[in-house]
């Protein structure tokens, strides 16, 4: 958002990477790829590669952070220093990664049945190995699969997608160029059963009607992602592991 460019974001109804406005990038999800973690997932979403590991419930450290009524969920989102052309991760957490860790944590604070594990913490580590726009939504998608893989009780499954507007057209699943130079960018996370929004942020300007349209589009898109999440988990449990995993 905010930058200016000569790139035509939409030409003949097609986007910069040749997709239709409502077309998503290829999404591949694998569950349980870190044997030592309690739960883990890998998501390859277009040019994004995201690795997520879940540990816990375990002893809350520091102790004063423990809540006697529920588990504390801790989330750490980090972009690898080599994940994109811009510099990332050279001196620890940044303003951006702190914000993303917070919004991702809040998605799962609403979904995890944390009352079952008082005085403990559940750690969600998200590493972005390669970034191409839409890493926070891909991270939510990965973390949901990893939490299910860890056996953490949740009230619902969640999937996330970024929508936006460029050249006055509503777009599903923004890529990096559209994210940087489009008119608007709306990442959102929607639960599967209740269709509730657990995360919505907005950059740029949109009308009320456009937001309503976007939420309808998001419902369809998250449905597709949910299918892939379920497929990844089913494959993992039916084959009893992920021996044939390939990067």
């Amino acid at each position: 958002m905010g930058g200016s460019t000569d790139i035509q974001l939409i030409v003949d109804g097609k986007r910069v990477d040749g997709r239709a406005p409502d077309e998503m990038r290829n999404v591949r999800i694998e569950a349980g790829i870190i044997p030592e973690a309690d739960g883990s997932a890998f998501v390859e979403w277009g040019g994004n590669k995201i690795l997520c590991g879940v540990y816990g419930p375990r002893e809350c450290i520091p102790r004063h952070g423990a809540n006697p009524y529920r588990a504390t969920i801790k989330c750490r989102y980090m972009m690898s220093p080599f994940s994109s052309k811009e510099e990332h991760g050279r001196s620890g957490p940044s303003r951006r990664s702190t914000e993303l860790s917070k919004v991702i944590r809040e998605v799962f604070e609403n979904l995890v049945v944390a009352e079952r594990f008082p005085n403990t913490q559940i750690d969600v580590y998200i590493d972005v190995l390669q970034a191409e726009g839409g890493t926070r939504t891909a991270s939510v998608t990965a973390a949901a699969v990893a939490l299910v893989n860890a056996g953490i009780p949740m009230k619902d499954m969640v999937s996330a997608i970024a929508l936006g507007k460029a050249a006055d057209v509503l777009l599903v699943d923004l890529g990096k160029t559209e994210d940087n130079f489009g008119q608007s960018d709306v990442p959102l996370a929607m639960s599967h059963k209740d269709k509730k929004l657990h995360l919505i942020q907005m950059d740029g300007l949109l009308t009320k009607d456009e937001i309503a349209d976007m939420i309808d589009m998001a419902e369809k898109a998250t449905e597709q992602i949910h299918e892939k999440q379920v497929d990844a988990l089913k494959r993992f449990y039916e084959n009893g592991g992920n021996e044939n995993f390939k990067w």
Binding site: D38, G39, P57, F117, V148, N149, A150, G151, P153
Partner: peptide
Amino acid sequence: ATVIGTLDETGRYIPLENP
């Protein structure tokens, strides 16, 4: 259900993963 599990024809639900 709150955790991943199996459901058989008789309606018995058994978790596949659980701390």
